[in-house]
C-alpha cells in the first residue's frame, strides 16, 4: 500500500466530505437507523452495494489514469459508467459535488497532467473517478484506490450518525473495525474486479432503499447534511 492513500482516506482531508452523510441523515429521520446495531446493518448494506460500485469504479479510474487500461475510452466514458450505475439524481449530484471538491484539493496536493486532463474532460467528475485519479497522482495503485473508496463508503456515514444520534463514538468505531475485515485488501479479492476489464463489466449493484433515502433527503425542508 502506498502511504499517500492515508491522506485520501483521512476525514480531515479538506475535500468537503464532512457535509455529506451518505443517506444516514434521512435513515435517522425515518427511524431506520436509531442505534449502533441498526447503524451497523446500514453500513454493511452500503459497503456491499453502492460501496462496491464505488470501489470498482475508483480502481478502474486509477488504472485508467495510469495508462494501464488500454482501450478506446475516455474520462467522460468512465464518468457515464458511474451515472449508469447511480439511479438517484440526488446521489449523482452528491457524488459529483464530492468528486469536484476532491479533485480541486488533489490538483494542489499532487499537481499532474492526469488530474488536469480529468478536470478538463469532466469538471465535476463522480467521486470514484476523482478518487482513482487522485490516488494515481499520489503514486498509489488501483487496489489502494479501491480500499480508499470502500472505506469512504462507510466512514463518512458512521461519523454523521455519531453527530446525528449522539452515539458512543467508540461503539461506532468498533463497527468500523469489524467492517474493515470486509474491505478489499488485494486485487481480485471480493468485489474488486480486474481494473482493466471492459467498464461495462464492472459491478452494478443497486440499493433501492438508499436511492429512496437520497431522493427524500433532497426534498427535506430542514437538514444538516447535503446528502
Amino acid at each position: 500500500m502506498n502511504a499517500a492513500i492515508l491522506l485520501l482516506t483521512d476525514s480531515r482531508l479538506p475535500a468537503g466530505g464532512h457535509a455529506h452523510s451518505g443517506g444516514v441523515e434521512q435513515a435517522v429521520t425515518s427511524g431506520a437507523v436509531h442505534d449502533v446495531p441498526s447503524l451497523g446493518s446500514f453500513l454493511r448494506g452500503r459497503l456491499h452495494t453502492t460501496g462496491a460500485v464505488a470501489t470498482a469504479l475508483a480502481a478502474a479510474s486509477c488504472a485508467f489514469a495510469s495508462g494501464t487500461a488500454d482501450g478506446p475510452w475516455a474520462w467522460d466514458g468512465l464518468d457515464a459508467e458511474v451515472d449508469a450505475r447511480t439511479a438517484s439524481p440526488a446521489q449523482r449530484a452528491a457524488s459529483r459535488v464530492q468528486g469536484r471538491l476532491l479533485l480541486r484539493v488533489a490538483r494542489r496536493l499532487w499537481p499532474s497532467p492526469v488530474l488536469e486532463e480529468l478536470a478538463g474532460a469532466v469538471p465535476s467528475p463522480h467521486h470514484p473517478l476523482a478518487l482513482g485519479a487522485a490516488a494515481h497522482a499520489a503514486g498509489a495503485a488501483p487496489e489502494d484506490a479501491a480500499l480508499a473508496a470502500a472505506y469512504h463508503a462507510i466512514s463518512g456515514p458512521a461519523t454523521a450518525a455519531v453527530r446525528l444520534l449522539g452515539l458512543d463514538p467508540v461503539a461506532v468505531h468498533r463497527l468500523l473495525a469489524d467492517l474493515s475485515r470486509e474491505l478489499p485488501t488485494a486485487p481480485g479479492e471480493r468485489d474488486l474486479p480486474p481494473s482493466a476489464a471492459p467498464w461495462a463489466d464492472l459491478p452494478a449493484h443497486s440499493a433501492p432503499a438508499l436511492d429512496v433515502l437520497a431522493e427524500r433527503h433532497a426534498l427535506a425542508q430542514v437538514r444538516l447534511f447535503v446528502s
Partner: peptide, 20 residues
C-alpha cells in the same frame, strides 16, 4: 453552501465547498 452539522468546519478546517 450547506455545511453538514458543522458550520465551523466549513470555514476553517475544510473550506473546499466555500472556496468552490
Amino acid at each position: 453552501v450547506e455545511t453538514g452539522c458543522c458550520p465551523h468546519t466549513a470555514i476553517r478546517d475544510d473550506i473546499a465547498a466555500n472556496l468552490d
